[in-house]
Design a protein around this nucleic acid. Structure first.
Lengths: 207, 207
DNA sequence: GTCGATTTGTTCGTATGTATC
DNA sequence: TGATACATACGAACAAATCGA
């Protein structure tokens, strides 16, 4: 268990965050299938060398994410219902590729909705700073549009999935589907048809 | 809070679930604005008549949802960053209308993606049972399509937002935008253009 | 149907690390 | 530097639910 004494590292990893990851790791490495039973809280607390209280805080979080399911008098089980998208701050471990692709599809769905909604609103386009890579430009535009929408959840979902993808170096391995300037000029012209043609290309493009 | 058990009994809501709701209630009723400080864990435990451990489990959950932000040595604050979509099992309180509309927009975004993805996959259409209302039919179709997609998150997001909307009687107040048979036959014919024309109508229709 | 073992749910006391003044 | 306020973490104890003998 790493204690962070360094001050200029911003977030001190807290016990329950570490525990959450370690529980996920344990499920993956055992491996435990949906429906199977986890070690008891006391066993986990011994296994991970933390108190039972901390184990419980970690389990609570994973329970909320529909990852686990606890039943008094029985135990804690790996859930079989479809899980939430796991927030990036919960897991630091690298996510394997097919799973990352799922997050990318969600991000892209949000991006389409955000761009369409913003252009429909007829608000003036916010100024953009030209970035190095296609994906950085893409992120910046979607993000700045998303912030300005009345519905905050599109932006929230977009940020969450994008953060998780970059944390896993997804975009370093992903080819850019076309030159950024193509999408940029289409947006400037508010050419919805061209934009959606290009965004479909983004979804198809390989890695 | 009724849980899905095979015993047809109402499960006792657990402390941390009650605590999360009560903390939200407290923030609303005080009211506390983003950035403001919550009572300390000890005060909350006294206020809500539960132990500090239970308060902590509740705070952990709300922190994960970006609803709160705890800093050691300082306190716990109402977050200002855009929140996660709050899972329906966390809050039982009724959500006001403009907020519900946001959830509906997310649900609709997922529905569009799910229907489009499924029809593109060229899988045979699953059998549907005709339901009473437009929205029940709509839910059933999107849900059965969503379950069959390789990406589980579209379905997860759809279910979550739909559950929250029904829990708040959203659809009892919402007009149906057109006859269900219209959308049904368009799906049977896999007429994507007609489908998306209709789904846009769903988004525009008033309540 | 009862008893006992097991497991999660809940509480409390205590100690420690950290930020503010 | 010291004092105070606060979150963080631990461990022991007991309550409640479940299951099998």
């Amino acid at each position: 268990m790493v204690k962070n004494t360094n001050k200029h590292i911003k977030s001190i990893p807290r016990m329950f965050e570490q525990v959450t990851q370690q529980i996920i790791d344990h499920i993956d490495s055992t491996p435990l299938e949906p429906g199977q039973k986890l070690p008891t809280e006391r066993q986990l607390s011994e296994l991970l060398q933390v108190s039972r209280s901390s184990v419980r805080e970690g389990i609570k979080v994973l329970e909320l994410l529909r990852f686990l399911d606890s039943k008094q008098g029985e135990g804690t089980f790996v859930a079989s219902s479809p899980p939430y998208m796991i927030p990036s701050r919960v897991i630091n471990k690298t996510i394997p590729m097919p799973e990352l692709e799922h997050y990318f599809e969600v991000a892209l769905m949000c991006a389409k909705t955000i761009i369409l909604s913003f252009l429909k609103s007829e608000e003036p386009l916010p100024d953009q700073q030209e970035r190095d890579s296609f994906w950085e430009n893409f992120y910046q535009v979607v993000s700045s549009f998303g912030k300005r929408l009345p519905n905050p959840y599109f932006h929230s979902l977009w940020e969450e999935s994008y953060q998780l993808l970059t944390a896993n170096q997804y975009f370093e391995r992903k080819q850019q589907p076309f030159e950024w300037s193509e999408l940029d000029t289409a947006i400037q012209k508010r050419d919805l048809q061209k934009i959606f043609y290009l965004l479909d290309l983004v979804g198809i493009s390989g890695s």
